[in-house]
Nucleic acid binder design. Structure first.
Lengths: 219, 219
DNA sequence: TGGTGGATTTCGATC
DNA sequence: GATCGAAGTCCACCA
């Protein structure tokens, strides 16, 4: 990785056109050729960048980075403060826990968390436009399609409504209705669900982890 | 900005739990307290990070970064190769051109690009769930609701369908129909539009820029 | 290889 | 401050 701290101005032309006036910034060049220009604030996102694969041409205080799609990033270096390179080696990468797949796994094991007496029929129940997360039956023997999101927003409700629309004509699915499940559901999403006759439930991930059966606790 | 190159292992606990095994990485600390951990590859996104506001406590080769929401990032430094700090000063920020707002502006000025003989009634035509981008009339005097996206995907068609559903009952909008407009429209979005009786049109941004009236060319 | 959906999304505008 | 929508989104998965 090469790290350059310099007073520079930058232009990008590609999916849009953008310019950065002259200022002091960090230019980061990764081993795969990625170039990122960071200011000393904001979140992790650089002000400007170019992802691999690309080519860097360096002439007289000017870097021209191009990629096969015809995008270009031009960096004009007005004053270089530091310029250093470092060997990193392979990175083993990040291990994650707590994303939507896990939430689905936990809820499949404990459908009662969603609604009392709910029983799982199968995960990833197929429809023409994609699978429903969980298909269950309730205590009355009625079918319940469950859509799971980490965050409950309006488009998740839309998605479930579309599934229901497609599945309702199937007379095998007696009394089919929907439940929208997420860790947190936004007010507007709750409202839309109610308008469409869809129930919703908020579930607690940590609570679920604590309650899941032993065999699931080992991943 | 402080830049540390070190062999380190990292743990994050907050919205999810994640760990990074020991390896050489760049740790970037910005003036506002943001911490980001980069490997020497991948795109601009760091492997792990913590956004401001937060607090960094540094003891004996261990950094503990916490934020008010109770998230924590723990960095164990096993071997420090470089550790440097730099003054950047304020950044004037990025200037952009070519985003959706401009596209709407250009199409409002040249609705004929969308369909021959189309005339603009107004931009941001209100509905209970948000404004329609453009309301126009065609050569027959029928109303046309236009939804504009930079990229035409399925949810944009959904959005326009929702608007139309809400606006159809309004008898003032004689013969109301919809057109979905984007620079590029995905096949599935085209199909969905056609199924719902919504027309679609692909427009070229550069071409529009060239054709727009003089007064608009000055921004 | 292209499409689709998730993200510790980030970011900005608007209410 | 909350919410909503766009992003040069990036990214992984899957057809």
């Amino acid at each position: 990785m090469r790290l350059v701290v310099a007073r520079c101005s930058v232009q990008y032309s590609g999916r849009l056109d953008a310019t950065l006036p002259e200022a002091v910034r960090l230019i980061m060049v990764k081993a795969d050729g990625c170039v990122a220009i960071h200011s000393d604030g904001g979140a992790y996102k650089p002000l400007n960048w170019m992802t691999a694969p690309n080519t860097v041409v360096e002439i007289e205080g000017q870097w021209i980075v191009t990629n096969p799609k015809g995008e270009t990033l031009t960096i004009n270096l007005h004053e270089v403060f530091t310029d250093s390179a470092h060997e990193f080696g392979e990175d083993p990468g990040l291990q994650k826990d707590g994303v939507e797949a896990h939430l689905q796994e936990l809820l499949a094991a404990l459908p009662e968390t969603i609604e009392n007496g709910l029983t799982l029929i199968r995960r990833e129940w197929p429809t023409p436009i994609g699978p429903v997360d969980l298909m269950c039956v309730d205590t009355e023997g009625n079918y319940v399609a469950v859509e799971i999101k980490r965050r409950g927003e309006i488009d998740g409700v839309e998605q479930l409504a579309r599934y229901l629309e497609l599945l309702q004509p199937d007379s095998n699915l007696k009394g089919l209705r929907g439940i929208f499940v997420a860790q947190v559901i936004k007010p507007q999403a709750k409202k839309m669900a109610e308008q469409r006759g869809i129930a919703w439930a908020e579930v607690d991930y940590e609570d679920l982890r604590g309650r899941r059966p032993e065999e699931l606790r080992l991943f």
